[in-house]
């Protein structure tokens, strides 16, 4: 039954949704389009949505004279290492908090929980001083180690592992399995959805992380992509098209990664919301 009223309603629903979607997408489109423009097309009015003579000049300049390959590699190394370490340590700790039996376990877990609430700025100055003392400023270690364990990931893994029935573990234990075996043979395989969730979020988070690398990576050779792009944008007289090309390089990998793994992203967020 199609009434006039419902047609109007449906149309306006899609109009709103599509308008919103355009607002979401335009900045990306504009970034990509400008990054392929020659200088003379940048200031054209009305705006040129598609460059008439697309050029790779800006990207070539970015990698050749501004050496964007280096921060790219740094970011991959740093974000990759943080992800691997974080997944490993937080699943181990999550397992222990969920299934080990020892005195003070719950009190200890509450302590971990409490630290989730602490804003990052609270720890930045002391950690900076500590790393400086250890000579870790400007090193991969300095970028990776402080970020390798997140209390939230431990909490998240514990909440997931606790839903695994004890019987499963008890049965294996009867057969003489030790904790290490349980972890690798039972916990890890069963936790795959949770593991991929924290892996995805940790990777995205460290790829995008800015304040900490800004403070730790003082040497151009240690810059991560966000730091490199912030410096590029602050540089005097730097061409807009090159800035846009730089932004593309920072944004594109995560965006592509997201489009392939979107289901995990979306499920993961719904999951983190539920667990509270």
């Amino acid at each position: 039954m199609v009434t006039k009223k419902s047609v109007i309603r449906e149309t306006s629903v899609y109009a709103v949704l599509i308008f919103g979607a355009v607002v979401m997408v335009v900045p990306f489109f504009w970034m990509v389009s400008t990054s392929f423009k020659l200088p003379r097309e940048i200031f054209v009015f009305p705006p040129k949505w598609i460059p008439s003579e697309p050029t790779l000049k800006n990207y070539i300049e970015l990698f050749r004279s501004l050496d964007f390959a280096r921060p790219f590699i740094n970011t991959v190394v740093v974000a990759g290492s943080i992800t691997v370490l974080s997944v490993l340590f937080s699943s181990m700790a999550g397992f222990a908090f969920a299934k080990f039996r020892f005195k003070g376990r719950d009190a200890l877990f509450m302590l971990v929980l409490a630290t989730i609430m602490v804003p990052g700025q609270m720890t930045i100055i002391p950690v900076f001083l500590m790393l400086r003392h250890l000579g870790l400023i400007n090193t991969y270690a300095g970028l990776i180690i402080p970020a390798m364990v997140s209390a939230f990931n431990v909490f998240f893994m514990r909440q997931f592992i606790i839903t695994i029935p004890d019987d499963l573990l008890e049965a294996a234990k009867m057969d003489g399995a030790r904790e290490g075996f349980l972890y690798f043979k039972i916990i890890l395989p069963l936790c795959r959805p949770a593991l991929s969730t924290i892996a995805i979020f940790t990777f995205t988070g460290s790829w995008n992380s800015f304040l900490w690398p800004l403070i730790i990576a003082q040497d151009e050779r240690m810059y991560t992509l966000p730091v490199a792009i912030s410096v590029l944008a602050g540089q005097y007289g730097e061409n807009i098209a090159i800035q846009m090309a730089g932004s593309c390089i920072v944004i594109a990998p995560i965006l592509i990664f997201f489009i392939f793994a979107q289901r995990y992203f979306i499920k993961g967020i719904a999951l983190t919301g539920m667990k509270f």
């Binding site: 919103g20 979607a21 979401m24 997408v25 900045p27 990306f28 504009w30 970034m31 400008t34 995205t204 790829w207 995008n208 800015f210 992509l225 966000p226 792009i229 912030s230 590029l232 944008a233 807009i240 800035q243 846009m244 730089g246 932004s247 920072v250 944004i251 995560i254 965006l255 997201f258 489009i259 979107q262 992203f265 979306i266």
Partner: peptide
């Protein structure tokens, strides 16, 4: 997916784009 795109985007890099917009 479309509405979610900005969230996974790097703030620093997209801010460069916004300042141009």
């Amino acid at each position: 997916v479309i509405y979610f795109l900005p969230f996974v985007t790097n703030t620093v890099a997209i801010a460069v784009v916004w300042s141009w917009i």
